[in-house]
Simulated scan of single mutants.
Amino acid sequence: MTEQDGWERKFDHRWANSAEHKEPSARARMLAARWKENPPGPVPFRADPGPVPRRSSWASTAVVLGCVIVVMVLIGIVELGSSR
C-alpha cells in the first residue's frame, strides 16, 4: 500500500458534513429515550445567583502581605540557624 492509497482512504470531512441524514450521537439517543418516559422539568436558562458577599480588597492584600512576611521570617530563622 503506497502513501497515496492511504491518503485516499482517509476520512473526508467535507463528504461527511454534506450527508443528508445525520444520525444523533449515542448520548442524544439515550436522553431522547429517557425523556420520552420521564420528561425533565422546566429549568431557567441562567439561574439568578444569590448575592455574593464582597470581600474587601484590603483584607486580601493584608492576607497576602502577612503570608509574605511570615515566609521572610521563616527564611531568616532558617538562615540564622544554618550559619551557626
Score class of each variant (00 low, 15 high):
1 M>F: 06
2 T>Y: 00
3 E>R: 13
4 Q>M: 06
5 D>Y: 02
6 G>R: 07
6 G>Q: 09
7 W>V: 03
7 W>H: 02
7 W>C: 01
8 E>L: 14
8 E>G: 08
9 R>A: 09
9 R>E: 06
10 K>L: 14
10 K>W: 08
10 K>G: 07
10 K>Y: 03
11 F>N: 03
11 F>Q: 04
11 F>E: 07
14 R>K: 06
14 R>A: 09
14 R>V: 10
14 R>P: 00
15 W>V: 10
15 W>Q: 09
16 A>N: 03
16 A>I: 13
16 A>T: 12
17 N>P: 01
18 S>K: 08
18 S>Q: 13
19 A>Y: 01
19 A>C: 03
20 E>H: 07
20 E>S: 10
20 E>R: 10
20 E>M: 03
21 H>I: 05
21 H>N: 12
21 H>K: 09
23 E>V: 12
24 P>D: 13
25 S>T: 15
26 A>T: 03
26 A>H: 02
26 A>P: 00
26 A>R: 03
26 A>W: 03
26 A>V: 11
28 A>S: 13
28 A>V: 15
29 R>V: 15
29 R>D: 04
30 M>A: 14
30 M>C: 04
31 L>H: 04
32 A>R: 15
33 A>Q: 14
33 A>I: 10
33 A>D: 13
33 A>E: 15
33 A>V: 06
36 K>E: 15
36 K>F: 14
37 E>L: 07
38 N>S: 10
38 N>C: 06
38 N>I: 03
38 N>Q: 08
39 P>G: 13
39 P>Y: 15
39 P>Q: 13
39 P>S: 14
40 P>M: 09
41 G>C: 06
42 P>Y: 06
45 F>T: 13
47 A>V: 14
48 D>R: 15
49 P>F: 08
50 G>D: 11
51 P>C: 01
51 P>E: 10
51 P>D: 02
52 V>Q: 06
53 P>Q: 12
53 P>E: 14
54 R>H: 10
54 R>P: 03
54 R>V: 11
54 R>E: 13
55 R>L: 06
55 R>G: 00
56 S>V: 04
57 S>I: 09
58 W>T: 06
58 W>A: 08
58 W>D: 08
59 A>L: 11
60 S>W: 06
61 T>N: 00
62 A>I: 11
62 A>C: 06
62 A>V: 12
62 A>H: 02
63 V>R: 15
63 V>A: 12
64 V>D: 09
65 L>M: 08
67 C>H: 00
67 C>P: 00
67 C>N: 08
69 I>M: 02
70 V>R: 01
70 V>D: 02
70 V>T: 12
71 V>P: 00
71 V>D: 00
72 M>E: 04
72 M>T: 04
73 V>I: 10
73 V>F: 02
74 L>I: 07
74 L>D: 02
74 L>H: 01
75 I>F: 03
75 I>W: 03
75 I>L: 07
76 G>Q: 05
77 I>H: 00
77 I>N: 00
79 E>A: 06
79 E>S: 02
79 E>V: 13
79 E>N: 06
80 L>C: 01
80 L>H: 02
80 L>D: 02
81 G>F: 05
82 S>T: 09
83 S>C: 00
84 R>L: 10
84 R>Q: 12
84 R>G: 09
84 R>N: 07
